[in-house]
C-alpha cells in the first residue's frame, strides 16, 4: 500500500550546505532501500524560526514529497529522531486530503458550468468577466515562503 507523504525537516543553522545535501541523500538512500520514490524536494533556505528551538533562532527548511509505505516513513522518522543536526521535523500523509481537495474543486467547477449553461452562457468564464478578480490570480505567491524574511510577530 503506497501512500503519499510530506516530510519537512528543519536543519540546524550551523550545518553547511554540504551537510544539508548529505541529509537529503541519507533520506533518499532509505527511500531507495525500502522501496519508495521521492516526488520532489524543495529547499526553502534559511528561515527565521517563530520561536527558539534549543537556542537556535534560525533553521534551514527542507520539504520532501515521498511515495511509500507507512513502514518506510516509520524508518525515516526513527532515523531523523537520532540525527542531531535536524532540530525539528514533521511527517504528514497528504494523499487523502489532496483527493478531497480535488473532488471539491471538480464538483465546484461542474456546478458552475452546469449553471452557466442553464443561463445560456458559455460553460467557461471568459477573461474579464465577473465582478471581481479571480481569487487565483492574486494568490500566485502563496508558496514562495523563501522570499518572506523576518516574519516574527
Amino acid at each position: 500500500m503506497t501512500r503519499k507523504y510530506e516530510l519537512v525537516y528543519v536543519v540546524s543553522p550551523e550545518a553547511s550546505d554540504d551537510q544539508v545535501a548529505d541529509l537529503h541523500n541519507q533520506v533518499d538512500a532509505i527511500v531507495q532501500r525500502i522501496g519508495g520514490s521521492i516526488e520532489k524536494t524543495e529547499n526553502w533556505g534559511r528561515r527565521r524560526l517563530a520561536y527558539e528551538i534549543g537556542r537556535h533562532k534560525e533553521g534551514t527548511y527542507v520539504l520532501e514529497v515521498i511515495h511509500g509505505t507507512g513502514e518506510l516513513m516509520k524508518e525515516i522518522d526513527r532515523r531523523i529522531k537520532v540525527t542531531d543536526l535536524i532540530i525539528r521535523h514533521l511527517v504528514v500523509r497528504v494523499d487523502e486530503a489532496q483527493a478531497v481537495i480535488e473532488r471539491t474543486k471538480a464538483r465546484r467547477s461542474a456546478t458552475s458550468q452546469r449553471r452557466r449553461v442553464a443561463r445560456g452562457l458559455p460553460a467557461d468564464r471568459l477573461p474579464g468577466e465577473g465582478q471581481r478578480g479571480d481569487p487565483d490570480d492574486d494568490r500566485d505567491d502563496r508558496f514562495d515562503i523563501g522570499n518572506e524574511r523576518g516574519m516574527d510577530r
Binding site: 504528514v92 481537495i101 515562503i145
Partner: peptide
C-alpha cells in the same frame, strides 16, 4: 468566500491573519 479549498500548513501568508498578537 474566496473558494480556498486547500488550507495548508506551509502557507504562512494564509494562516498569519488567524493568529493575532
Amino acid at each position: 468566500a474566496d473558494k480556498i479549498d486547500d488550507i495548508n500548513y506551509k502557507d504562512t501568508k494564509l494562516l498569519l491573519p488567524f493568529v493575532p498578537e
